[in-house]
Design a protein around this nucleic acid. Structure first.
Lengths: 308, 308
DNA sequence: CGACACTCCAAATTCTGCTTATGATTCGAC
DNA sequence: GTCGAATCATAAGCAGAATTTGGAGTGTCG
């Protein structure tokens, strides 16, 4: 097996025309080049050079190796260039798995920022609800998972049993305030904030399973069991159901920011309820430049939104 | 610049699926592989692997490098194979520059032997008279030069002034007896040997310039100046001229062996005259397997002919 | 004929890389 | 759940390699 350094030096010797010139070009001393070429000839088993007065001449084997050297150094250079592009964020692919409301808010904004500065980085997006997204991360099907957790719930992070092997890293992005979604004609629709305990007699519309579980829990903490008459994980359906007067619903502010219906309004709820939106990534993937970059953008976007 | 050994190990790790398996396959210990891959990731600037429980998974950069590794190792292997073929005499090209009578005798015989055992070796033949053939050798236009020298003449070897720089090596092949070519009707045509001093009154046909010079010299040593009525370096013409009775000629036995004319005969000459046929090669070229092989074959052919 | 440039040679130093030994971790089996 | 096999990471030690340094010979050019 030839040493790529020897090949490189050999190629330089051939194009420079002398050992000394090659040594100067490569930052070696001349004896180093002499020894490298000697080692190369040894591993080739055939002389490569013939001395011709002041210059040197290639033997048949030398001519052959010179041709191969072009190819070898070319493919080495191509590999180096491609990996360099990945390292310097001129290329890269990041697979994100997020829940629907993040896909509609954080992800597009972060992607827009990303493409502005690093047009070579590609994003692949897939959708999954919190428990599943982390599983996909652990299965290697995505690089970043976005999930939300309700306080008191087991937490999406460690829901995958042990997190020791894969070293799952949790990156808090924002605290998403929960609002109560009311039809505009509702008696509390003009209040600034609504006490949850004032809604014990309402009919409720519940969202995704974990949202529904959270609803039941916070109501239980307030001392009542909500009358859930409808359950759907389609936020648009929830909004329409509320508008139609079927019932009220808890709705994260993140979702409200991209839904709007003339007949519904979101009000802050007392006590303050919220869900934590976090990004998850395998610790080893933090060293992947493109992944780290997307995480930075997500953090920036979340911080900006938190500020509002 | 990637180290080709690292690329090879990386490729083995990818196909074997683990560091340990790659180490076993390559004859390394496991920590050696760990260090090599660490160094490779350092020079790549990007992580290449992600640990997935017992196995490992490639990152995007790792996938890219794995694809390049195929190409790199392929071209390295191709180079090694071609140089190996040259070293093991499965391929090779030898350029020989010889004088006409060698081209008609020694060269074909040696080439026949050569091709029998080493069909991959190619011979390129060019023709030149002794002074010129060595010059071509020094100019790198051929690998082996065949030349003849007459005793007492300056010698073809050092005729190129200094032989220090290029280290010209002289390899004696055979001692070529000179004969005198007589028409069959000549009074001495039946004698076993003819004394040169008996031919003082003959008309002479001279060959190439150096042959002519040799003729003049040997005659002078016998105390007479030959009456040269014709000069040509065409041996066939010489033979015909002798057959036509124009004169007599000195003719090396090597030439006689492939010329034959009913009306002429070659007789040994007294005193014994001969020319030395030698091969010349640059000392460095002795290490080129194909060149050395051809020299061996030439030596063998010459020795066989000498024995006759 | 002298000066410069190039190469080779030999020795010493610095270095990189491999190995051995040890510890931590994970997966499979009982 | 626990034991055992296997894997990887780390540290220390050592050997071999590669480079640099210093010196000499040689050809080339002015």
């Amino acid at each position: 097996m030839f040493d790529s350094r020897h090949i490189k030096t050999f190629h330089e010797v051939v194009s420079a025309g002398s050992y000394s010139a090659a040594a100067r070009a490569l930052g070696y001393t001349q004896p180093a080049v002499t020894q490298q070429m000697k080692a190369l000839e040894r591993s080739a088993g055939v002389p490569l050079f013939t001395r011709a007065g002041r210059g040197l001449r290639l033997t048949e084997a030398g001519e052959a190796l010179a041709r191969h050297a072009e190819v070898i150094l070319g493919s080495l250079s191509a590999a180096q260039q491609q990996l360099g592009a990945l390292a310097r964020l001129r290329a890269g692919r990041v697979r994100i798995c997020a829940f629907p409301s993040a896909n509609a808010t954080l992800i597009p904004e972060a992607t827009a920022r990303l493409l502005a500065d690093h047009p070579g980085v590609r994003v692949e997006l897939m959708e999954a609800e919190p428990p599943e997204s982390v599983h996909r991360l652990l299965r290697g099907e995505c690089d970043i998972a976005l999930a939300f957790t309700y306080p008191g719930s087991p937490g999406a992070a460690v829901s995958g049993a042990e997190n020791g092997p894969e070293e799952l890293v949790e990156i808090p992005l924002l605290e998403d305030q929960l609002t109560v979604l009311l039809p505009v004609g509702h008696p509390y629709a003009r209040r600034h904030a609504v006490r949850l305990s004032d809604l014990t007699e309402e009919r409720w519309i519940a969202g995704c399973p974990r949202c529904r579980a959270n609803l039941l829990q916070v109501c239980a903490e307030e001392g009542f069991a909500p009358d859930v008459v409808f359950t759907t994980d389609d936020n648009l359906a929830v909004q329409s159901l509320v508008a139609a007067g079927v019932g009220v619903a808890l709705m994260p502010a993140l979702v409200l920011s991209f839904l709007s219906h003339r007949k519904v309004t979101g009000r802050l709820v007392e006590p303050h309820l919220r869900r934590r939106v976090c990004a998850y990534v395998l610790r080893e993937h933090l060293r992947v430049p493109a992944t780290a970059l997307v995480l930075d953008e997500l953090r920036a976007v979340a911080a900006a939104r938190q500020g509002c």
